[in-house]
């Protein structure tokens, strides 16, 4: 059961990789990378259950947070050209 779900995750991951390669604008790519990150979070949790080691859930939590921060940081870098403001 967990193996079947893992295979479904891998299949949709491959479909999303096609969009990352094809993507016309940068927004398509950022959006697809974010979705891939969500699928990887689910995949890490499922893999933890599949091998009977639920400690993997901690890694899944950290991956979810880093996914969010990374997406927002890339978009901010793309929109303003820098990651922070100079203090006056």
């Amino acid at each position: 059961m967990f193996l079947a779900a893992l295979i479904a995750c891998a299949f949709s991951g491959i479909l999303i990789l096609i969009r990352i390669i094809l993507g016309q604008t940068i927004f398509d790519r950022v959006l697809a990378v974010n979705s891939l990150g969500t699928i990887i979070v689910i995949g890490i949790a499922l893999h933890g259950f599949y091998t009977n080691r639920p400690e993997f859930l901690d890694i899944a939590i950290v991956y979810a947070l880093i996914n969010f921060i990374g997406t927002v940081a890339v978009l901010k870098l793309f929109s303003t050209g820098s990651l922070g403001e100079q203090r006056k």
Binding site: M1, C9, S12, L15, I16, R19, S35, I39, I42
Partner: peptide
């Protein structure tokens, strides 16, 4: 799990 798999595969198809 079946509904979830269907949901992410349809979402990935829609993304393409």
């Amino acid at each position: 799990f079946f509904i979830g798999s269907l949901s992410i595969i349809i979402g990935a198809c829609g993304l393409i």
